[in-house]
């Protein structure tokens, strides 16, 4: 088993929480894992990405090579496309469709969606809207993780366990909101496929 995943978004959108939960689930499943993340200057409202690699064999590089990623999981639509060079031929693009506009030259939204949908293997969902609908507006990132959950080759229960471990400190309410969010994302993918 091997999954190479690019996580993408804008600084502050919560991709490191997604990484932490997948990472915890992977370790709990006895798998090897490497996860390179971005700290420092680029976090300030800029594009951020994380390379997450899971395997049942030892992993060498902390970085995924171009053309090697099985999945791009993005919490922002334009950012999902920035990492297309990493995507393997049969890889999947899973992205939130809610644009985060903090630059003057953000592309035309229609064109953006058209480009995303030109990839045959894609899941596009308005995770912000779904998170709002289920009453957990701050759990958009977990909705996206839920939408990607069936592609990870990790058991769903382990991901839930990951959420409990990572958010446990913040109290039951926050854990529950995130569990609800990941479930909503998973349901979306079930119907989309």
């Amino acid at each position: 088993m091997k999954k190479d995943i690019i996580l993408a978004g804008v600084g502050g959108q919560g991709i490191l929480s997604i990484a932490a939960i997948i990472g915890t689930a992977a370790i709990e499943s006895g798998l090897h894992l490497k996860q390179a993340e971005v700290h420092g200057m680029s976090q300030r409202g800029g594009d951020v990405q994380s390379h997450l690699r899971i395997s049942d064999k030892p992993i060498h590089s902390d970085l995924i090579p171009n053309g090697g990623a099985d999945l791009i999981i993005s919490v922002e639509p334009m950012e999902s496309l920035r990492y297309i060079p990493y995507l393997s031929e049969n890889g999947w693009l899973i992205t939130n469709t809610k644009a985060f506009v903090n630059i003057p030259d953000y592309p035309d939204y229609g064109e953006l969606m058209k480009t995303i949908k030109s990839f045959p293997n894609h899941i596009a969902l308005d995770a912000d809207e779904i998170a709002k609908d289920i009453g957990s507006p701050r759990s958009m990132n977990m909705v996206v993780l839920g939408a990607a959950s069936t592609f990870l080759d990790l058991s769903y229960e382990k991901l839930e366990e990951g959420i409990k471990i990572i958010f446990g400190r913040k109290g039951e309410k926050i854990v529950d909101a995130n569990l609800k969010a990941i479930k909503a994302g998973k349901e979306f993918t079930k119907q989309y496929k």
Binding site: N66, I84, P107, D108
Partner: peptide
């Protein structure tokens, strides 16, 4: 040999870091 991979779609613009 290079692994096959696609280019970044042209419409993607830069998102440099900025003051919050």
């Amino acid at each position: 040999p290079k692994l096959s991979s696609k280019d970044i779609p042209e419409l993607v613009s830069g998102r440099p870091p900025a003051l919050c």
